[in-house]
């Protein structure tokens, strides 16, 4: 494949951001347009550097990594807990959780509420106050392209600064499917082994 590097005007920026773990979504207009336009070029360029550039149809690009650095793993778990507790929070407030998750601005009050109501969980992440949640999670979400800083326009919280989540958060919603309660796994163990047995049987028959 012939890649004309002079066409890839944002290569430097895009490379720096993606390799650093940043997720480029439609919010980053220039980078997004360039990636969208030259997707094949970028994909093969990154592939030759050893990276898998992924395009998610829900509107974001990222580099798919096989494992995490110890530190990033910890940060990712904190993101997950925050996203899931936010869903709980919105559902409990009578909102449609999925819509609220991407539409509502997470203000300091909301953070306070999250930490207070899910204290046992955040405690495990060494987060015990709204200020710590903001510093350890939301500011890092900014740096990784999971959120933007914005001002709330809701009537109740109008004018308050906060964070709005972006499309890459879908990665955490997808992860929910992966996390199966352990009990269920044990129970399906037997069925699984039955399946494997019968599959082996069939192969033998053939």
């Amino acid at each position: 494949m012939q890649i004309n590097l002079s066409e890839l005007t944002y290569l430097q920026d895009i490379n720096k951001k993606l390799v650093g773990g940043y997720h480029i979504s439609e919010q980053d207009v220039q980078l997004w347009q360039q990636l969208d336009q030259y997707q094949d070029e970028y994909t093969s360029l990154f592939a030759s550097l050893g990276y898998r550039l992924k395009h998610d149809v829900r509107g974001f690009f990222f580099i798919d990594a096989d494992d995490s650095t110890v530190n990033m793993g910890k940060i990712s778990r904190a993101f997950a807990v925050t996203v899931y507790t936010l869903i709980e929070y919105f559902a409990d407030s009578g909102l449609d959780p999925l819509r609220a998750l991407f539409e509502k601005v997470v203000t300091e009050d909301v953070m306070q509420n999250l930490v207070q109501n899910q204290y046992h969980l955040f405690e495990q992440l060494e987060i015990t106050s709204a200020a710590e949640l903001k510093r350890d999670v939301f500011n890092r979400m900014l740096r990784n392209g999971f959120a933007i800083e914005t001002i709330s326009t809701d009537s109740e919280t109008e004018g308050q600064a906060g964070f709005k989540l972006l499309a890459p958060v879908y990665r955490y919603l997808d992860a929910l499917d992966q996390i199966k309660p352990q009990e269920e796994l044990e129970q399906t163990d037997d069925q699984l082994s039955d399946l494997v047995d019968s599959a082996a049987q069939e192969q033998n028959d053939e």
Binding site: G21, A65, S68, T69, M72, G73, A80, R171, Y172, A175
Partner: peptide
């Protein structure tokens, strides 16, 4: 299961 953000 949490998504990987950045690898070694």
């Amino acid at each position: 299961h949490s998504p990987h953000l950045s690898s070694d």
